[in-house]
Design a protein around this nucleic acid. Structure first.
Length: 535
RNA sequence: GCGGGUGUAGCUCAAUGGUAGAGCGACAGCCUUCCAAGCUGACGACGAGGGUUCGAUUCCCUUCACCCGCUCCA
């Protein structure tokens, strides 16, 4: 499937528009049109119903270690700035970046390592991104820079230890990691991946706040509130759907990487001893959610992170990925990450930001030995009244992208097949084979022709269906054209009033995918359609 | 942020330094008894801003957006 065709259809039929299009558009932002908003709402409502309101607290779910509860939350986009300092986003999202004018490569300022080297009266700071073999790499580069052979390595004299580029002020003596000559690096420039704004009318450093880059932290900081207000017992999950914002360096690939996007996140709190089992449960359950809604093909996969990719406090992370058409063959894009996060988040918000590189986890300290970012100081542990046990729960985090899921469902649904026209010639038909739960319009009602009392019967069927679902009525033009329009919108069923209706009070129902038609009594249409939609 | 490409009607495309054209779609009407049929009619565009020019959609500059490749992707 070519992506341009889907993008074109999305625009033409009102699924997706570029934001602020009449002003030339704005990079990284997208608007959902009349059909798109229904589709995305259906995705979110399916998630909310399947994860939260439809969840059975009393039964042990398939694959689950025991019963569990699910509740929802909806918190503010703007939170106390300390939330983002303790969560680690402030440090991670505030990078200084260096560009190389010669190689056109970009580096994190603090990640470029190098060492001063002299040969005669020439002096340079040679750099490398080589990681573990950095010293060898630096020597190679120094030899090359001074046009020396390996046997003349003695002519090099090193000045000081390997150090970060942050220790260097004058870049004119710096050899970039991929450069062939000195002084090709730009001055460090600040990259803010979190959007900033201000609270109150005063616009100064003290009033600075951030638009959240993820919804998860709102759940962590409300953990105690939820516990105190609900009589919930562990294990339970808190779910939230909401907008998040990241000032991505390169928004790309339609809505896949947007700067404003919507997340569907769960933080699931459990006892540390059962956390590995719960992780497996959520990983498999979330994967199944996508397959149940139609991403059943080979383009969807569950990828377990390699143990070497994991933080030591995590016993597992898996990505649910989809092979979007705009990726190269064999490449996948993340729809959802399911992560075992241990007690990292709750402890950080209690004790202060933990250093993820420590084991066991310790609070990250600044140069004065003080906590780098102070936590709330509140006790975020859980007390098990039955076993009289007190502990900090472990967290399983299934974090999904609502826009990415919506886009994946669209990509998967887009189909071109052949269908005959009224003369029997085969014509290309464009159809969105969306799962009925996700389809923006559930059914369309047509009179075969605009006379003989057919519109009146059809309008009544429309009115009968409307209280139950989104239905569309159309009496204009040829019947075939009306069917094709609904195919493009992904409407699963079309109901047609014809001449026979006037004799025996039956109508035809047409299936979008098979093009099959069958007759149903007029007063059984609602039950028939409802029954098929709930399958 | 870099390099390359592309911006003309809702969509797909055409032409032109001198009033911008088509197909499809959408709309109105006629006709139509099951898969984008036919006839008629009306609507509808040069991404934005500057410059050169008597005159710019066309040439130049800037900018914005999209696509491809790099980079980035906690």
């Amino acid at each position: 499937m070519e992506m341009e065709k889907l993008v074109s259809l999305c625009k033409r039929r009102g699924f997706l528009f570029q934001s602020s299009e009449i002003y030339g558009g704005i990079n990284g932002f997208w608007d959902y049109g009349p059909l798109g908003v229904e589709l995305k709402r259906n995705v979110k409502e399916a998630w909310w119903r399947d994860m939260v309101t439809g969840h059975d607290d009393l039964s042990v779910a398939d694959g689950a270690p025991e019963t569990h509860s699910m509740v929802g939350l909806d918190c503010a986009i703007i939170m106390h700035p300390q939330v983002w300092k303790v969560s680690g986003h402030y440090d991670l999202f505030h990078d200084y970046m260096i560009d190389c004018r010669q190689s056109n490569k970009r580096y994190r300022h603090d990640q470029v390592l190098g060492r001063w080297v002299k040969r005669g009266d020439q002096r340079a700071f040679v750099t490398s991104m080589a990681g573990e073999s950095v010293e060898d790499d630096l020597q190679q580069k120094a030899l090359k820079l001074f046009r020396l052979r390996a046997k003349n390595v003695d002519e090099l004299s090193w000045d000081g230890p390997v150090a970060s580029l942050t220790t260097v002020d004058d870049f004119s003596q710096v050899l970039g990691p991929d450069a062939k000559e000195l002084g090709t690096l730009t001055e460090p420039r600040e990259f803010n991946l979190m959007y900033e704004t201000h609270t109150g009318a005063m616009r100064d450093e003290k009033s600075k706040v951030f638009l959240r880059p993820e919804t998860a932290q709102g759940i962590f900081v409300n953990f105690k509130n939820v516990l105190d207000s609900t009589r919930l017992k562990i294990p339970f999950g808190i779910a939230q759907i909401g907008k998040s914002f990241r000032n991505e360096i390169t928004p790309r690939n339609f809505t896949f990487r947007s700067r404003e996007f919507e997340q569907m996140e769960i933080e699931f709190f459990c006892h540390p001893d059962s956390s590995a089992d719960w992780y497996k449960y959520w990983r498999d359950r979330r994967f199944r959610w996508y397959t149940d809604l139609g991403l059943a093909g080979e383009r969807l996969r569950l990828r377990d992170h390699d143990p070497s990719e994991l933080s030591h406090y995590s016993t597992g992370t898996a990505d649910i990925e989809y092979a979007f058409p705009f990726f190269a063959e064999g490449e996948y894009g993340e729809l959802e990450g399911v992560a075992h996060r241990g007690d990292f988040d709750l402890r950080s918000h209690s004790e202060g930001k933990l250093d993820p590189n420590t084991n066991p986890l310790e609070v990250e300290k600044d140069e004065h030995g003080q906590p780098r970012w102070r936590g709330s100081g509140k006790d975020l542990s859980y007390r098990d009244e039955v076993n009289n046990e007190k502990y900090i729960p472990h967290v399983i985090e299934p974090s999904a992208g609502a826009d990415r899921a919506t886009l994946a469902f669209l990509c998967e649904a887009y189909t071109e097949d052949e269908a005959p026209d009224d003369k029997g010639n085969m014509k290309t038909r464009t159809v969105l084979k969306l799962h009925p739960r996700l389809a923006p319009i559930k059914a369309a009602v047509f009179p075969l022709v605009k006379k003989d009392g057919m519109p009146e019967v059809a309008k009544q069927i429309y009115r009968d269906l409307k209280p139950h679902m989104n239905v569309f009525y159309d009496q204009k033009g040829a019947i075939g054209r009306r069917y094709r329009r609904q195919d493009e919108a992904g409407t699963p069923y079309c109901i047609t009033v014809d001449g026979q209706t006037l004799e025996d009070e039956t109508v035809t129902i047409r299936d979008r995918d098979s093009l099959e038609q069958w007759r149903v009594k007029v007063d059984e249409v609602v039950v028939e359609i409802q029954g098929r939609l709930s399958q």
